[in-house]
Design a protein around this nucleic acid. Structure first.
Lengths: 192, 192, 192, 192
DNA sequence: TTCTAATCGAGACGGTACGTCAAGTCTTGCC
DNA sequence: GGCAAGACTTGACGTACCGTCTCGATTAGAA
């Protein structure tokens, strides 16, 4: 009936659930992750999980989100290519780590769970995308990048190939930063 | 013990299974697709399904593969941008159709099923990728595109943003062809 | 640890619990009665219930006990058959009423709860049995009934068929008083 | 949808379920009997239980029914009192045995499950009642018992006190046969 | 033409996990 | 300290599917 009161939430259980979820997803594989196993591993009742999350994907999303780290500003050394390259390298490293294993599962589950998909966009993709666009915006203002391409599109040109490799497994994600140069070639102003 | 003999296979059952799978995946959603429901809908015993496919993802893969149509050659009008744009438009249309609904589910399942992932690459992604690379190769030879970028990478630059939109749902896939021009800008030779 | 102090008990909560229990048991059926529902309906915390009663059967027992009415003396008109018949009719009416619905549930629960069973005997069956035996005793003294049969047994001969119908549902409990005459035939002295 | 086909039933599982149910009910107590425990003990899936029985009460009923033994004819030595006494003794023994423990639980559950109650009457109470009435009928015909009392009522006079002791626990069921004489006193013809 | 062998529809089976319900305990803050 | 409120662990519920396993009943060459 009434939604639970977040202030009365037990922080220990909360922590244990997120931690157990992450560890189990990594060790057993996301596909074999079950709410029951999470509850057992966290020493928690299943109801406590269902009280706060609608699906295991939602838990996993929370678990990886807090592990993806602080959204400090994008690096801004003035050199847009170097900045994008270092950022892309960081993201590629993330996707290749344990976090990537779980993230992959979350994205998979989101394919048939529109609500989860929206949460992924809001919590993970959106904010990081925003930071990237901000940096790109500055490069446009500085006359380094073309002003006639929406930064929204630029972000997709940059990250698209990364996710392509990540989700289709055609190539090693870690090598994706190599592609940055090719993309930038099309985004630069002629005199930069 | 012994693998089944394909010659003794009942073609009617085969057809019914693929058709029912596709229809159910579209109507109920891939996530709610079950082998049991396929068997019932196809008027087929469950064993008959398990005799020929290892998982529902494998069935769905077969079902969409035959619906994706003939792999004729890439269009080659001599105008590389027009060719890529028309090809990308075709792919975007595909991903936005019923086939896309099922394909999305197959990719999701492939995230935790390496065997299925390999099949997706071999049956769907690879062949289409190959055709694209062939066309790109010709454009390179014709001096329209830079020769110092592997066509393998070019394909990812082109299709990456498409799959990004398809799987993350940030933007309408149908609008993806707009991005082709931006990518090509970086791939062209200076004098083209 | 320490048992609660009955003097500090909130009479309003006490009343609300007993009333809600009875009403819920009647309306939803004893089998679907839950402590949680009682607490909610009574506007009371669950702990308040558990502080004063060990099980829902115990609450229900209290609830029906106070509704079964004052244990005034058995009627004693001098006509033992008429007295037993009127008494039996009263009991049959009780068992056929809402009270019977709850009583049935309490007896059921008592089958696997010896403590509750003892309470049922002490609070409900015993006292009424005692009154009946007192009346029978007077009839024995008056020479109307045989003196060689324990009144304890007589009570069971009289009430047994009633409970038989009540708990096994073979016949309408309301018709049970008809049986009194048959039983008495065997209990009378020859010259009565 | 469609009810399962009894011919395809696995007899080994059937047996194991009934046996495990009986043993668990006796060892743990009927109140602590769970479908899950039965399934585990019988080495059977829960679904297999739910496929064939609607509730644990129904399983337990089957289990005790087959253990209550052959419904051979009532003894008929010509001496109605001896016959009833021996029969009552047998029933009292039954109720005092392990079977009684389970039967008690079934009757309890039947109090809030009309369908089960009907099954108890049909499978247990009814047939035994019928045999008793047949014997009583013969005694009536032989002029030993009064013809103006329905045998249906006689049965309740005889068994009522037994069930009263059994379900209310006021006295030892084993001593119930003592009561037969008192009841018969009222049922006999004057010249018998 | 009968025999033999494999596939087929059907569906029961032992399991695993689901998401829900309620039990009884514990904690917090008000009266 | 009792109380209302409600989150907690525990454990069972009844359901849905999984993938395996009999069953007869076709069906198809091989004898």
């Amino acid at each position: 009936m009434t939604p639970p009161n977040p202030e009365l939430r037990n922080p220990r259980s909360h922590r244990a659930i997120l931690d157990s979820t992450f560890e189990l997803a990594v060790s057993k594989g996301y596909g074999k992750l079950t709410v029951e196993a999470i509850a057992t591993a966290a020493g928690v009742g299943k109801q406590t999980i269902y009280r706060w999350w609608p699906s295991k994907g939602a838990i996993a999303l929370d678990a990886i989100n807090e592990r993806m780290g602080h959204l400090t500003d994008f690096p801004d050394t003035g050199d847009i290519e170097a900045d994008l390259r270092s950022q892309t390298t960081a993201l590629a490293g993330l996707l290749s780590s344990d976090i990537g294993i779980v993230y992959r599962g979350v994205i998979a589950e989101a394919q048939s769970d529109p609500h989860l998909a929206a949460n992924v966009r809001d919590a993970i993709v959106g904010p990081r995308s925003k930071l990237c666009r901000d940096r790109l915006e500055r490069a446009v203002t500085a006359g380094q990048l073309r002003g006639d391409i929406p930064t929204r599109a630029m972000v997709q040109l940059l990250y698209g190939p990364l996710y392509y490799r990540f989700l289709l497994g055609t190539d090693d994600v870690q090598d994706a930063p190599e592609l940055v140069g090719y993309i930038l070639a099309g985004l630069r102003t002629h005199d930069s």
